[in-house]
Computed example of a mutant assay.
Amino acid sequence: MATAPKAFGNIRRSFDPWNDPKATPLIEFDRISKRFGTFNAVDDLSLKIYPREFFTLLGPSGCGKSTLLRMLAGFEEPTSGDIRLGGESLKGVPPYRRPLNMMFQSYALFPHMSVEQNIAFGLKQDGMAKGEIRDRVAEMLKLVKLDAYGKRKPQQLSGGQQQRVALARSLAKRPKVLLLDEPLGALDKKLREETQFELMDLQQELGLTFVIVTHDQEEAMTMSDRIAVMRAGKLCQVATPAVIYEAPNSRYVADFVGNISLIEGVVESGSGGLVRLATDVGVIETESATTVAPGDSAAFAVRPEKMRLSRRPPSDIGVNALRGVVWDIAYLGDVTLFNVKLENGALVRSTVINASRVADEQIAWEEEVWLTFERDAGVLLVQ
Rank of each mutant, 00 (worst) to 15 (best):
E116C: 09
D43I: 07
K173F: 11
D147V: 08
D126T: 13
I119Y: 06
R152K: 14
P94T: 04
L45M: 15
L68N: 02
L157P: 07
L85E: 08
Y50D: 10
E53C: 10
A172F: 07
E116I: 03
E182L: 00
M140I: 12
K130S: 13
R169P: 12
E139T: 14
L157Y: 08
L85P: 11
V115A: 05
P99M: 00
G150W: 14
G159N: 08
G87W: 12
Q125F: 11
L45A: 04
A168Q: 08
S80Q: 13
G64Y: 00
P78M: 00
S158G: 08
V165N: 02
M128P: 06
L57I: 03
D43M: 04
R84Q: 13
L123I: 02
V42A: 04
D82A: 14
A73D: 06
Q125I: 15
F110H: 13
L72T: 13
V115G: 03
M113D: 03
T67A: 02
L58I: 07
D135G: 01
P99V: 00
Q156C: 02
I49P: 00
Q162V: 11
L171G: 02
S66E: 09
G81Q: 02
L157I: 10
I83H: 04
Y149E: 05
K48R: 15
F55D: 05
L69C: 09
L109H: 04
G64H: 01
Q105M: 04
V144D: 09
G86M: 05
K153L: 15
V115K: 04
P154K: 05
G160C: 10
D126V: 06
R136P: 11
V42H: 03
Q161Y: 05
L180M: 14
D126H: 15
R152F: 06
S89W: 11
V144G: 01
P99G: 02
V42F: 03
I49A: 07
T67R: 05
L85F: 12
Q155E: 14
V42S: 05
S66V: 08
E88W: 08
E53M: 03
E132Q: 15
